[in-house]
Simulated scan of single mutants.
Amino acid sequence: MARYPNVTIKDVAARAGVSITAVSHALNGKGTLSDETRARIRDVAQTMGYQADALARGLRRAQIGVIGIVLRPLDALEDYSPPGVDYFLRFAGAAAVSTLDHGLSLMQVADLAKGPVTPLAFSLDGYIVTDPVRHDPVVDLLEERGIPYVTLGRDLGRPDATNWVASADADAALMAFEHLHEQGARDIVCVGGTDDNSWNADAEAAYRSWCERTGMPARFLRSPEGLGESGGRDLVPVILEGGMPDAVYSLTGRHAAGIQDALRERGLVAPRDYLLACGTDADQTRTADPPITAIDLRPETLARETVALLVAITRGEEPAGRRLVPSELLVRRSSLRNG
């Protein structure tokens, strides 16, 4: 009998010619696989010497009633309470309530791929992974271990995946551009982050498409999310070097606040001299002077949809997934030149 060192569930899936989910269902007695397919997968796993962690396998079979949540953008920041960023707090709080509605509990876990991680982390019923980066290592690890998961936002490296819920980020960006255009903006600078996730990618794609369609010049700038307000401030000389735009659309609230402060120091005030809008509502956008127009991503709705999808998957169902949640544009004084 051939044996393969350090064999993973992904290796078994590749050799059997099936998905990782199929291997997980075959080994755990779940799903709707035929008896023939289930037996074949088990034979491949036995031949290869695949053996999942006994504690994790036993606890997952017993459904311990706890799901995990990994907040990837905060892992990247190495700060789980960044000033002014309440989106993740709203999402996590609503997810906790939603899991209770399903008779479950929620546990927040730091980056699973970095470790050290308690063995209990791999014994949970499933995971919510927020804003994964392309080929996210946490998602890789969950797949290798056969642990069910749902992502909030798409993993750009897995275009065929269906187990995700996302805000309609391209539509939200277009709403903001339309609003700025209606207020007279014909030259809009767009500021995104550097994380390689679907939130940044979809907003940039929407911006470039909008510019091409309207004949506007495309001026897309990036600043690392972790720099916060200082990152926005540092971009202002670059913005002005290309000529003062009619409007600035910043994906993050902290960047937007830094841009607003640095332009004010130069005597440029919204909405008199330019319009300002932001891709996510935050404490900085609400308390700024003037308050900054922003997108409400509706994290409470996203949480309910994400939890419901994960619960269905952990119960052996095959839900549709790929759920898009519309966002809302909160118009404030920073973008109301005619208001």
Score class of each variant (00 low, 15 high):
residue 2 A to R: 10
residue 2 A to F: 13
residue 6 N to T: 01
residue 10 K to Y: 09
residue 13 A to D: 05
residue 15 R to I: 15
residue 19 S to R: 01
residue 32 T to R: 14
residue 34 S to C: 11
residue 35 D to H: 01
residue 42 R to I: 12
residue 42 R to Q: 15
residue 46 Q to T: 15
residue 58 G to Y: 01
residue 62 A to R: 14
residue 74 L to G: 01
residue 81 S to Y: 05
residue 83 P to C: 12
residue 92 A to F: 03
residue 96 A to G: 05
residue 96 A to R: 08
residue 96 A to Y: 02
residue 98 S to G: 08
residue 116 P to I: 09
residue 118 T to H: 06
residue 120 L to K: 00
residue 136 D to P: 05
residue 136 D to V: 15
residue 138 V to D: 00
residue 144 E to V: 12
residue 146 G to P: 03
residue 147 I to P: 02
residue 153 G to I: 07
residue 156 L to Q: 00
residue 158 R to T: 07
residue 161 A to V: 11
residue 161 A to L: 09
residue 171 D to F: 08
residue 173 A to M: 13
residue 175 M to L: 14
residue 179 H to S: 06
residue 181 H to V: 00
residue 182 E to C: 02
residue 185 A to F: 08
residue 190 C to P: 05
residue 192 G to W: 07
residue 201 A to G: 09
residue 202 D to W: 02
residue 204 E to T: 07
residue 207 Y to F: 13
residue 217 P to I: 00
residue 225 E to G: 04
residue 228 G to T: 10
residue 228 G to A: 12
residue 228 G to V: 12
residue 229 E to R: 15
residue 230 S to W: 08
residue 243 G to A: 03
residue 243 G to K: 14
residue 243 G to H: 11
residue 251 L to F: 15
residue 252 T to D: 02
residue 254 R to S: 14
residue 257 A to G: 06
residue 260 Q to C: 11
residue 279 G to T: 09
residue 281 D to S: 10
residue 285 T to G: 13
residue 285 T to Y: 01
residue 287 T to H: 14
residue 307 V to I: 12
residue 309 L to R: 10
residue 309 L to T: 10
residue 311 V to A: 08
residue 314 T to F: 06
residue 317 E to A: 13
residue 327 S to R: 11
